[in-house]
């Protein structure tokens, strides 16, 4: 527990900066919804006919003149990208920072097994991602209250659940990758998150690369898909979960035997 508390405390500033920025941006975006709602009504048909561009961002499936649709398109992009970057930064740093900052000799000479340390760090990572998502949900919920709009709770809950799973998947993928690194590689994590985001856009645009939806968690967490179908793509989430577990097993196995210099 000491290590979990330590990690949460050490990353609190990062959590607040990212959580307040992403959540705040979403909140502000929703505040402008009442004033743009009328203008947007005329744009729905135009967007629906914009072909690939609309498909790329799911605007062919979602009605963004509704508050939830607007939330999914405008706020969704910020939460998806912002949250995945936050998760990637934390994930890549969680293990590798100990070697990079030369604190491994302090931490790993305390009387615990290497597995115990890795497990607690993984738990701390999960809790930080969860706290970030709770902040985002709080801001999202608050924004609906602020503009006096009814929140369709089921879709909202499914969407945020999918977002949480996506952020956790990216965090743990980066955590596993960081097991082989000598120092924190924030750029690598952010690069991976952006790459997976663009893979989802390609999948939306072209049927030829539809198989790539199994490789990017952005696909199953896309607001357009969830609001359109009203359900989660559990098969994709399951595959994502299994992939993440495999990566984690590799990360654990590698780091347990790693020479910490």
């Amino acid at each position: 527990m000491t290590l979990i508390k330590h990690e949460i405390k050490a990353n609190l500033k990062t959590l607040l900066i990212w959580g307040l920025t992403v959540g705040g941006m979403n909140f502000l975006m929703m505040l402008i919804f009442p004033s743009v709602k009328e203008q947007m009504a005329g744009m729905v048909e135009m967007y629906a006919n914009m072909g690939s561009f609309s498909q790329a961002f799911g605007m062919d499936k979602i009605n963004f003149t509704t508050p939830l649709g607007f939330y999914g398109i405008e706020a969704g992009a910020v939460l998806s990208l912002g949250g995945s970057m936050f998760a990637a930064i934390l994930g890549t740093g969680m293990l590798a920072k100990e070697e990079g900052a030369l604190t491994a000799e302090f931490l790993f000479t305390t009387p615990h097994t290497r597995t115990y340390h890795i497990a607690l760090k993984a738990v701390a990572l999960g809790l930080l991602v969860l706290l970030f998502n709770l902040l985002a949900i709080g801001f999202g919920y608050g924004s609906f209250l602020a503009i006096n709009e009814t929140l369709e709770g089921n879709e909202f809950a499914l969407y945020h659940l999918a977002q949480l799973c996506m952020h956790l998947q990216i965090a743990y993928l980066c955590f596993a990758v960081s097991a082989v690194l000598k120092r924190s590689a924030m750029g690598l994590g952010i690069g991976l998150a952006i790459l997976l985001y663009f893979v989802q856009i390609f999948v939306n645009i072209s049927d030829k690369v539809e198989f790539l939806k199994y490789f990017t968690p952005f696909y199953y967490s896309d607001a357009a898909e969830i609001f359109y179908s009203g359900e989660l793509q559990l098969n994709l989430m399951f595959i994502g979960g299994i992939t993440t577990i495999l990566f984690l097993v590799f990360g654990f196995t590698y780091y347990r035997k790693k020479d910490l210099l």
């Binding site: 000491t2 000479t109 009387p111």
Partner: peptide
């Protein structure tokens, strides 16, 4: 064991008292 590494590196943003307490708490 009590270990002193060749280079003393700790978590930069922590205060000394918190660092010492963390070391004890981890034990």
């Amino acid at each position: 064991v009590g270990y002193m590494p060749g280079e003393a590196n700790f978590y930069q943003s922590m205060r000394v008292r918190d660092m010492i307490k963390l070391s004890a708490d981890l034990r």
